[in-house]
Design a protein around this nucleic acid. Sequence first.
DNA 1: CGGTATCCGCAAAGATACTG
DNA 2: CAGTATCTTTGCGGATACCG
Lengths: 234, 234
Amino acid sequence: MHYNRPVFSDRERARSYAQVCGIAAALDIVGERWALLVARDLLLGPLRFGDLAEGLPGIGTNTLAARLRHLETVGVVQRRAVPLPERGTVYELTPYGRELEPILLALGRWGTRSMGHLPAGAATRSRWLVTALLAFHEPSREVARPTTWELRLTEGTYTVRAEGAQLAIEAGPAAAADLTVTTDDAHFQALVTRQLSPEAAVATGVVGLEGDPAALALLVDQFAFPVPGEETVG
Amino acid sequence: MHYNRPVFSDRERARSYAQVCGIAAALDIVGERWALLVARDLLLGPLRFGDLAEGLPGIGTNTLAARLRHLETVGVVQRRAVPLPERGTVYELTPYGRELEPILLALGRWGTRSMGHLPAGAATRSRWLVTALLAFHEPSREVARPTTWELRLTEGTYTVRAEGAQLAIEAGPAAAADLTVTTDDAHFQALVTRQLSPEAAVATGVVGLEGDPAALALLVDQFAFPVPGEETVG
DNA sequence: CGGTATCCGCAAAGATACTG
DNA sequence: CAGTATCTTTGCGGATACCG
């Protein structure tokens, strides 16, 4: 693996902590406001500028552009041209940026216990819900054979694939899913947090299935979300 | 475990990402400038306001006070009165704050590969060097029997204790050390990064030992620091 | 020593308008 | 759609003065 040495601008140098410490160095790179949230939204695959902006309510296009430029300079994000017929540019994590994944997921588990402070009108995105699946995946719940689910949620479709103790999720439809689950974010969240049983979900019709119905319980079982209200900080 | 629900001020509410996402919630709490560095410096034990300020060059006492107030409100840090004869107040991590440790250490390992951008005059602290020991501790290098080292470095004394695959470090002298190592930060760093052999260190007198000299090689062996120049980003 | 309070200047961030 | 330009607001760093 080879990377370029990023050339820091005067501005970046001025804001640098300038400490001989790995933690401070990391924060020089991803410590600015919004930076880690950009990385979070890219965990499930490349996104266009507009999709990123929509997924970061309140960021302002100038700030987003500045962050992307910075993250590109330091080797966390890279731009890639999308070929015809779609055209355009997408942003994706570099291999180095992808190594933030376990850190982001651990941070997410830690922060979940402090979600009590969120205001009533807090923003919701399907992508964040799906990312939480990664965070609360329980490797010990191994699947007997490789299984693929397609999740059609409020704002998009995601593919979940389990193989042994491994779980991989990416944006987009599945090539060949064992089960396709169609529902909205709220009901899907109720499912994985065990506030809505798979049976009830199907019986009441709030969740639509296509494929092997038994795979729904298997999906829910892959995750160990904290019980709401327990061990909460704030 | 019970925590209070933090009451966010108007300012904090205004800066909140307000996203239903554990990662965003975590950044609402520790995402501001300096916040995670305060937590880092508290990993090895409680500190006074002045010690914190000294360990965060450039922070400004008002900003430090604001951060500590915030971290206290959200349940990451707590103030504690120090009894006589010392008197005063120290800040320490709460149990919730202590759970940041693995995250901070992982972030530090990640950021270490980007330390190439640091300016020539970057600040150095014994505490950060010792924290790096925690980050690069290699659990597979189990010690045959519990061993305690006392490190007398440039800016203070630290106690390292290994037991099986576990390693614990805290600020302050050891009650009963197998070996006391006296040297400056630069030579100690050279030791643990294997740029200076234990034999050479002792032979040239740049490292002073008191106790079982064989324990020095054992200490160095507990850590797997990345080889400088290899797999560097920036 | 252990902070708090205040003022200044700068740079980042938010909002919005605009352009290729 | 993918940004840039501009304006306003806010946070941060630095200095200093002050108080228990």
